[in-house]
Simulated assay, not measured.
Amino acid sequence: MTKNVLFIISEWGYWGEELIGPLEACDAAGYNITFVTPNGKKPTPLSVSCAPGYIDPPLGRGVTSEEMGAKTTRVHESDRLDSPKSLADWFPLRAYPSSPTYLRDMEAYYQKIDKIIAEELVNYDAMVIVGGSGALIDLANNSRLHELILGFVKLNKPIAAECYGVTCLAFARDFREKKSLIWGKHVTGHPIDYDYLDGTGFEGPHAIDGSKKGFGDGYINFGPPFYPLEFILRDAVGPDGAFIGNVGHQTSVLVDYPFITSRSTASSVECGRILVEVLEKGLTRYGW
């Protein structure tokens, strides 16, 4: 039976290769792909991930090849990402504790979540959370995405997360227990050594001037990233888990089932290959 995979993509700028790597692997395996964005808007690739020869400041080398830049542009200019599934329309929003009907609201909330898991998520075989700086804004602390991740964990289905997308795994937790899902796990992700000191940018269909051309001029620079992901991951895994950055190694992909974590751009193709191995060969441990 053909497998079905969800691809979760930020609306504030994804890194092209971090979509293309897993996507090509899933396409080659004949999987059905469903793209999901927070509000159902077409996602925008970060311009530098389409620009061959772009030099990554911390690494001091080019990270966008001619081939990957062209592939990212082709996918973006096609109609493939035009109508993604809306996470906001799919999953309910958790009630505020200040609601006068909070207990009844939460009962209804969990009934809806349980129904989605039992009737809809069972039809999917894996999830990919695409990386890029946009994940800092609308994926990392997205409670709807956290519930989607929790649903996959309950169903024991694999979740692949790349770069800043790994933050979603650190923040996803049962709202009643508030303990990270990756507690005790081995994960990789964007290490502090690779964080920008300046130039963390975001791009998308949002516009200050009301147009559809991005942030007025199509790009906004927030300097360094909002948070040091490595430190968050080290805390989230606890004393029995481990953050493994593999700094100095060209790639870093770990499997500590059900989680597949990928460090950054150069690891994207490997991440896709390993995801297929998890689905086809039952791989449960890799890279540690």
Rank of each mutant, 00 (worst) to 15 (best):
L87Y: 07
A242W: 09
Y219A: 05
G184Y: 06
S252I: 07
S49G: 01
F222E: 13
I55P: 00
A135R: 02
V5R: 10
L155T: 01
I192V: 15
S211Y: 09
E67N: 03
P43I: 03
I149Q: 04
V122K: 05
F215G: 07
V130C: 08
K281I: 02
I117Q: 05
L59S: 04
L254F: 02
K281N: 14
G69F: 01
G287D: 09
P43A: 07
K42Y: 11
A118W: 01
R285P: 01
Y124V: 06
A140Y: 11
S47M: 04
E230H: 14
V122R: 06
K185I: 04
M68V: 01
V166I: 15
E67S: 02
A118V: 00
L150C: 08
G165Y: 03
C26V: 12
T251P: 00
I117C: 04
L197R: 13
P38C: 10
L279T: 07
L6P: 07
G272C: 07
P191C: 08
L233V: 14
S262D: 04
L59W: 00
W12M: 12
G134R: 04
Y196P: 01
V166H: 05
D235E: 15
K281F: 06
E147G: 00
V166A: 12
N4P: 02
V5W: 07
D125E: 13
E24I: 09
I208Q: 10
D79W: 04
V269T: 07
L254C: 01
V187E: 06
D125I: 10
W12A: 12
N4I: 05
C168I: 03
F202K: 02
T73E: 13
A88E: 15
F215W: 15
V237I: 14
A88T: 06
R273D: 10
M106P: 00
D82S: 14
R80Q: 11
D27H: 10
G272M: 05
L197A: 12
K178W: 00
Q250Y: 10
R285L: 14
R104H: 11
V75P: 07
P224Q: 12
M127H: 01
T200D: 12
Y227H: 14
E18K: 05
G248K: 00
A95M: 01
P225Y: 11
E230T: 14
L121E: 06
L145S: 10
R61T: 09
L121M: 13
T200A: 11
E147P: 00
E147S: 05
S133C: 12
D198V: 09
F91W: 06
V237D: 15
F226N: 11
G223R: 09
T261A: 07
I9W: 05
A25D: 03
E120L: 01
V187R: 01
P191T: 07
L169V: 06
P158V: 03
I113D: 01
D193W: 04
V253D: 08
G62A: 12
K179D: 06
Y219I: 11
A118N: 10
A170F: 09
F259Y: 08
F222C: 13
K41L: 15
R104Y: 03
L233A: 15
G53V: 02
T251C: 04
Y196K: 06
H146F: 09
V187D: 03
